[in-house]
Amino acid sequence: MTTPPTHSGRRLGRTTTRRAAEAVVRAIIYLCGWMAIIILAAIAVFLMWNSFRAVNEAGLFTMLSGTAWYPTSSPGKFGMLPLIVGSLYVTGVALVVCVPVGVAAAVFISEFSGRLVKEVMKSIIEFMAAVPSVVYGLIGVAVLIPFVKDAFSLMSGMTAVTGGIVLGIMSIPTVISISEDALHAVPEELRQGSAALGNTRWQTTFKVTLPAASSGIFAAVMLGLGRAIGETMAVLMLTGNAAVMPASVFESVRTMTGTIAAEMGEVVQGGLHYSVLFAVGLVLFTITFGINLVADLVLERQRKRWRR
């Protein structure tokens, strides 16, 4: 017959196993947390590793400043500038579309709409973000390409403007939801204080609420920009993909993302062209990383501001 374990003995045993379990769980959670950083670092290293040959043989400066992109001629010419400019043109047009619409919509939702309208609008905007980019591309092909061609009397409707407009529309949900968060974070007391000084809703919005939320709205724009510059499918369908230096936004452009997607299937693995495409990816990665970093720093500053 065994004596039952003493009360204190049992508690001790349970504590030990629990401690072990806690250590395991903690290790798993730590690992998951670090995973994001590990993956990000791995991507950076992977891109650098694969673009090593391109930097070595074609030269980093030659690639970044070259205006001729003839990757399949012999010897191949890998001037990325038309691609970078193409991306910037498309993204610039996207910003012109998404910033005014997105910020205005956020102001309406946060400051002027009733509770029901607000809820409905927010779910519709979430849905807008969930539509696959290829569907936006299809609508662009069917509607926007002929429209741009006629509206600006162009030879072809496949231009930077066309891609930019669709990208802008695609970025609107990002801009709205983050701007709306920023406006929502402005303490109600500030609005009341402004109203109590004899200001209308509009005056309060323009003079107090928007300035107070400005850094958050800036971050929203930056994140929208990050989304626009990294988007691939819609621009591939809409911009015409001519890899030449565009003279204006009404010409066909090819973006960095479009180039990688279009050419990756035809290159020899490990070849120079293959490596150059990785270099393009590295440039893109650096740009989006920078944009997101700035947006994050600005958001963090805003958060600190209201924590008092």
């Binding site: 500030l190 109590a196 004899g198």
Partner: peptide, 29 residues
């Protein structure tokens, strides 16, 4: 009415701007 009847709230709620701008806010309106 609110220009004639001002209010001070329970928690201080200065606007996120300079002292001068805070005081000049109402007159500017």
């Amino acid at each position: 009415l609110r220009m004639r009847v001002g209010q001070v709230f329970q928690r201080p709620n200065p606007f996120p701007m300079t002292i001068w701008d805070n005081v000049a806010y109402g007159p500017r309106t």
